[in-house]
Design a protein around this nucleic acid. Structure first.
Length: 479
RNA sequence: CGGGGUGUAGCGCAGCCUGGUUCAGCGCGCCACGCUUGGGACGUGGAGGCCGGCGGUUCAAAUCCGCCCACCCCGACCA
């Protein structure tokens, strides 16, 4: 039994497993010829396209419109917001030559678009009647990273970035939280990835913003993943780019802005939330393939008969909006089973001679052990129902893991022991001092992922320094 | 940028210590044909490599020496 493209078990080496799943699932490969970049292969890009479609619908449903801004940003723009440039300058790619000639002003390849969009907002916005300005952009982003991990951190990645301007802080803050909810809903209901909504501490917030909010997921190795962010930019960029409007009283005011984004990093989160030692596991709403139909036969007559029924099955399932593959390649069935499991097909259907006799087919869901036999006439409905069930089951399974991996911890020793071991979220008291937070990070590499929204107020003592604290925050190792 | 490691066929590796007829090899994959097909079959035949690059030592270099380059891991920054 020669094993092809073996996948390292999670328990043995989680990062290795992660790479293996991506490779074996044909999602992506490191570009190598371009340092830190990756090639997203069709199987991986199909997932991204589904993410885009679902999110784009939600972004538009909340009143935003798509637009596109240049990838090159004048270097001077970055410098207009002091904290922004400080935060991003270490990871900028800069264009100095164009058409063979040294440029008068260097261009930065966008690490994010607040500045260039700020510039245009200033032109577009004059009156309160122009507000709110609700813009979204699908784009590629470049950040010169030192340490890269496929999907999770690469020097170029794809994302969506929303940029909005409002007349009041009350309104912009509402927008920030509304989009955070959109992300949370998307993560849980489409990706089947449970997330915590929360607020970032000062040290983790977006450079140039006032406050950052996030959704945080928990991966199978007990590390957290920031899956999306939504920033309250206050009037910082309004002031830097002179984005002003006349209010109803005729006075000039700076706009209140927001920005929010999710990236191809989500695919990494998807992999680390659901996949197993056999390869990719994908919730039906995002899976590149829902069903694979495999005919089984011993001779030409059986081949013709099973293929005929198989093809009809494929058409019926496609009619229900499922993406279906008919795999009649000249390989042994077992080999096909393993291949489609690696590639994350949600389910497979086997149609063999015995099935023809019994007017049934064999059905195997990717996330379950057992194989079941389903009467042909109920087949399509059964498959559709199972896709819905799988979507829910994956979420529940991930949520159970997340909940069981979230612990209230009150002593420093217990904290260290937990983080040295299984990891997970540690819900702990924190004094609120950034220095203390930094010390925890230095000692344990664990960071505060967020202060959960709607957090219960509760008196306690900081897990690190023992000073007074009014609420618990979530700590974890993070990507 | 520090510390460690690796560059030999598409992938994974052996060969290097002790230069030369096991030096260009193995497993997987790939191609052809046959035989098979309800959990990774098998047989036969075949294609595929400037042994990371440059220079040196030598009668002779994948092998020894020097320099360079690339990549990976670990640390400092991060959606």
């Amino acid at each position: 039994m020669a094993e092809q493209s073996p996948i390292t078990p999670r328990a043995k080496d989680f990062p290795e497993w992660y790479q293996d799943v991506i490779r074996a699932g044909d999602l992506a490969e490191p570009a190598i010829v371009v340092k830190g970049a990756m090639v997203i292969k069709p199987n991986g890009y199909a997932i991204w396209e589904k993410i885009q479609r679902e999110l784009d619908d939600r972004i538009k449903a909340t009143g935003h419109r798509n637009a596109y801004f240049p990838m090159f940003i004048p270097e001077s723009f970055l410098k207009k917001e002091a904290e922004h440039v400080e935060g991003f300058s270490p990871e900028l790619a800069v264009v100095t030559i164009g058409g063979g000639k040294e440029l008068e002003e260097r261009y930065v390849v966008r690490p994010t678009s607040e500045t260039i969009i700020g510039h245009f907002f200033a032109k577009w916005i004059q009156s309160h009647r122009d507000l709110p300005m609700l813009i979204n952009q699908w784009a590629n982003i470049v950040r010169w990273e030192l340490r890269t991990r496929m999907f999770l951190r690469t020097s170029e990645f794809l994302w969506q970035e929303g940029h909005t301007a409002h007349a009041t802080h009350e309104e912009s803050l509402k927008e920030v939280l509304r989009m955070l909810d959109v992300y949370a809903d998307f993560a849980e209901n489409v990706m089947a990835m449970p997330v915590i909504r929360g607020e970032k501490t000062a040290s983790e917030k977006f450079a140039g913003g006032v406050k950052s909010y996030c959704i945080e997921g928990l991966m199978q190795n007990g590390w957290a993943l920031q899956a999306g962010t939504s920033h309250d930019l206050g009037q910082n960029f309004g002031k830097a780019f002179d984005v002003k409007f006349q209010n109803m009283a005729g006075q000039s005011e700076y706009v209140w802005q927001t920005s929010w984004g999710v990236s191809t990093r989500l695919i990494g989160g998807l992999v680390m939330t659901h996949s197993d030692d056999a390869g990719l596991v994908c919730p039906p709403k995002l899976a590149p393939y829902h069903v694979v139909v495999i005919p089984i036969f011993k001779n030409d007559a059986e081949r013709a008969a099973t293929e005929e029924v198989g093809r009809r099955m494929v058409e019926d399932l496609k009619g229900k909006g499922l993406s279906v593959v008919f795999d009649n390649r000249d390989e042994r069935p077992g080999a096909k089973y393993f291949e489609w499991e690696r590639k994350g097909a949600c389910a497979r259907i086997e149609i063999g001679p015995k099935d023809l006799e019994k007017k049934s087919f064999a059905f195997k869901r990717r996330d379950l052990e057992k194989k079941e036999f389903v009467p042909m006439e109920k087949g399509v409905d059964h498959v559709v129902a199972q896709m819905e069930a799988m979507q829910k089951d994956l979420f529940n399974k991930a949520k159970k893991f997340r909940d069981e991996s979230t612990r209230r911890i009150d002593t420093w020793d217990a904290f260290k022991a937990q983080m040295d071991g299984a990891g997970g979220f540690a819900s702990c008291h924190w004094c609120g001092d950034g220095a203390c937070e930094g010390q925890v990070k230095e000692d344990t590499k664990v960071t505060i992922r967020c202060i959960p929204l709607g957090n219960a107020k509760e008196a306690g003592k900081c897990v690190r320094c023992g000073r007074e604290s009014g609420e618990r925050v979530l700590f974890a190792r993070a990507y």
